[in-house]
Design a protein around this nucleic acid. Structure first.
Length: 258
DNA sequence: ATGGCAAATTGAATTTGA
């Protein structure tokens, strides 16, 4: 079973690119973030016609929004609310007896101080709650994917020194995400596949004149599997070429095969 | 540490992303 995660940055605008991803990456299940539309506007039929009729999604106007699209039957779709908000940043469902959790963790704003910037506090609280949620239960075999908006390792950014005080790579965020992985019994399947030395990015800013030339990326998107599944990850990929497509998302699809 | 961009909403400017 191939599972992909992609921050699509508007599912309506990039519906043709979603079809491209289906054609080239060929996932069995894809988890989207930042769909940016309410459920009534979600292109259910068009995506079903592309071969992915099993769907679960939660969206809101303009912001956030998550979806799980599958060509295999999907059951028990559900979600939790986090950090005292009702925003659409999480959805989960079971495919092939494995529960898949799809997250869009808050970006966290600009200033890495919760007193000055409530968005940063929201992000920290969100990660803490997710950590506690998974630490409190033996969840069996599960997968956690999404745009987690944190690059935890030095090898996950173009310059660990220059990004030290930049939200997504501060020490506090890095510690919190590594703690989430450890306490939840997760295995970082993408990093595990490529090894500790490889420089890995899943996001490149729109602001670079030439993203390929500047190559100032960050690994903000992740796929974790519970430790019992670690040995069953037979491949992993970061589909970087999607960043070079016409009208791309600033994130690229990442995948594992179980 | 910023910002050369982008999307959605609402009506040319604002919010959000990271």
């Amino acid at each position: 079973m191939k599972i992909t995660s992609w921050n699509i940055n508007s599912v309506r605008l990039r519906l043709p690119l979603l079809e491209q991803v289906f054609a080239t990456v060929a996932p069995d299940v894809i988890c989207l973030q930042e769909t940016k539309c309410v459920d009534d506007q979600f292109p259910t039929e068009a995506i079903a016609d592309m071969g992915y009729p099993y769907q679960a999604y939660r969206g809101e106007k303009s912001y956030n929004g998550v979806a799980i699209l599958s060509r295999l039957p999907l059951r028990d779709a559900s979600h939790e609310l986090w950090a005292g908000k009702e925003d659409c940043r999480h959805i989960s469902a079971i495919v092939n007896d494995i529960r898949i959790h799809n997250f869009y963790i808050p970006a966290g704003g600009d200033v890495p101080e919760r007193d000055e910037n409530p968005k940063f506090g929201h992000k920290l609280d969100f990660v803490k709650e997710v950590t506690a949620y998974f630490a409190a239960q033996d969840q069996g075999s599960a997968v956690m994917v999404g745009d987690l908006n944190i690059a935890p390792l030095a090898e996950d950014v173009w310059s660990t020194k220059q990004l030290r005080n930049v939200v997504s790579h501060t020490d506090l965020e890095r510690e919190r995400l590594l703690s989430l992985i450890a306490k939840g019994g997760w295995h970082d399947a993408i990093r595990g596949h490529f090894g500790p030395e490889e420089i890995l990015y899943s996001w490149w800013s729109y602001r670079a004149r030439d993203y390929r030339a500047s190559n100032r990326g960050r690994r903000l998107d992740h796929i974790f599997v519970t430790n019992d599944l670690a040995d069953k990850v037979t491949s992993a990929e970061i589909f970087a070429e999607a960043r070079g497509w016409e009208k791309p998302s600033d994130h690229v699809p990442i995948s594992i095969t179980l």
